[in-house]
């Protein structure tokens, strides 16, 4: 009996140790957001849905890994990754130089431009003069926040929200003149809904890599280069075998992947 226990103990140690060193990740915890439709949102029954969520499950299936989705507030997304609360972030996170200082990124898995939306009939133009004194809503700590702060920070009143949904609510309540957000998120999450019926797109799409990065990628701790490779391979595989297109078509009527990466 004692020998059996000892054997089991050694075996357990070996397995545990083996897993930590393994080249291939079989168990992955993924951080997602949940307040960013149509990319991620929480259904009335409490489960997660959206493009990010479907992509996450598809990638896990492709890698043959057992995944656990953890929802986390946007503000704490990267700190929680670094604190090992999960191993990867699939939350429409743009690949930017500032974030790259803290975490590693996979290749992009989609890239859509940012756009402004204004209250219908307000006639606001997206210029320094047109935006002067206007209240602009962005989600805090996003590429949109960085862009508006750097380009128009002196002239506009910036309201920063913890989630994109809160910005939509305040816009509907009449507290906001202009919103800046990802064009697809804003179209399906706001403009095409009852909440956003008084708002419309204005101005061009913005995708300057200086602010908006190279698109949305999967963030991973820097010391897990093997996991980055594993995700990159999986992204290529679901792009190639049509899984990506199937998920894409469920939410959008064009390919959100954008320009193919070289």
């Amino acid at each position: 009996m004692r020998k059996l226990i000892a054997t089991l103990f050694v075996l357990a140690l070996a397995l545990a140790g083996g897993q930590a060193d393994a080249k291939e990740w079989k168990k992955i915890r993924i951080g997602v957001e949940g307040a960013y439709p149509p990319f991620s949102s929480i259904k009335p029954d409490g489960t997660l849905e959206g493009f990010d969520i479907d992509i996450a499950w598809a990638l896990c299936k492709q890698m043959g890994a057992e995944c656990d989705l953890v929802s986390q507030d946007w503000d704490g997304m990267i700190p929680a990754l670094l604190a090992r609360k999960y191993d990867a972030i699939i939350a429409s996170m743009s690949i930017t130089p500032e974030r790259k200082e803290k975490v590693a990124f996979t290749r992009k898995y989609y890239n859509t431009p940012a756009k402004f939306a204004r209250r219908k009939g307000s006639g606001i133009e997206i210029t320094a003069a047109g935006l002067k004194g206007k209240t602009v809503a962005v989600q805090r700590a996003t590429t949109h926040d960085n862009f508006i702060t750097a380009e128009f920070g002196d002239t506009v009143k910036i309201k920063r929200y913890a989630t994109q949904d809160e910005a939509y609510l305040d816009a509907a309540a009449g507290r906001i003149d202009v919103l800046l957000a990802d064009s697809m998120a804003m179209l399906d999450g706001f403009l095409n809904t009852d909440t956003g019926k008084d708002f419309e797109f204005v101005g061009p799409g913005y995708s300057d890599p200086k602010y908006f990065g190279e698109g949305a990628g999967i963030a991973i701790r820097k010391n897990n280069a093997d996991l980055v490779e594993q995700f990159n391979a999986a992204i290529d595989a679901i792009r190639a075998d049509g899984t990506y297109k199937k998920i894409n078509d469920k939410y959008f009527d064009f390919d959100v992947y954008g320009e193919p990466t070289s």
Partner: peptide, 21 residues
């Protein structure tokens, strides 16, 4: 939490810019 930049609001902005909670 209602977008005001008070002391904690400032802390939250700084955290989100530098990922240094």
């Amino acid at each position: 939490v209602v977008t005001l930049v008070d002391l904690l609001g400032a802390g939250r902005i700084v955290n989100s810019r530098h990922f240094a909670p």
